[in-house]
């Protein structure tokens, strides 16, 4: 089935089973920055942005993306260089497998009201990191919010 949506700012048409997972379809387009982690919508490594909100692409069937605006880390790297820069400057990563997902969640942070550090922690709780202990990721998100 043909599915039309915008992907990283450009219109895209794909021919896919509408019940296929967005994660697999996106990765098959050679956009491998979106990572497979838990596969059950818990770890956040596969986070993409759909109409401005963070979505776990491992539990999102691609048919639901029809007519919607989809961003992956590859597009966000160009669209939001400030955000990427904050993750780089703070070294908000070690192994890096969760990093694109962390960045995608942070990219969509304006979809919620943030008034405190606690709010950031709750918002980012859907993105697991086993390496860093989260401090550098939190610093990156805080620095980004400070300039936006």
């Amino acid at each position: 089935m043909k599915i039309n949506f915008t992907l990283n700012g450009k219109s895209a048409e794909i021919d896919a089973d509408p019940m296929a997972m967005a994660l697999d379809v996106i990765r098959d387009l050679d956009l491998t920055g979106t990572k497979e982690g838990c596969g059950v919508g818990v770890c956040g490594a596969c986070t993409i942005m759909v109409d401005g909100e963070p979505v776990s692409s491992c539990i999102c069937v691609v048919g639901t993306l029809q007519d919607r605006e989809v961003w992956t880390v590859e597009g966000i790297s160009e669209k939001m260089p400030d955000l990427i820069e904050k993750f780089i400057d703070n070294e908000g990563m070690q192994c890096g497998i969760c990093t694109p997902g962390q960045i995608m969640a942070a990219a969509a942070i304006s979809s919620v009201d943030i008034t405190s550090e606690e709010d950031i922690k709750k918002y980012m709780a859907g993105n697991l990191c086993r390496c860093t202990g989260y401090q550098t990721i939190l610093n990156a998100v805080e620095d980004y919010l400070a300039i936006n």
């Binding site: 491998t32 920055g33 979106t34």
Partner: peptide
């Protein structure tokens, strides 16, 4: 800063 930061933050690390 760490040498792999850019590749990991932009999703190009393999």
């Amino acid at each position: 800063r760490r040498i792999d930061a850019v590749a990991k933050a932009t999703g190009i690390a393999k």
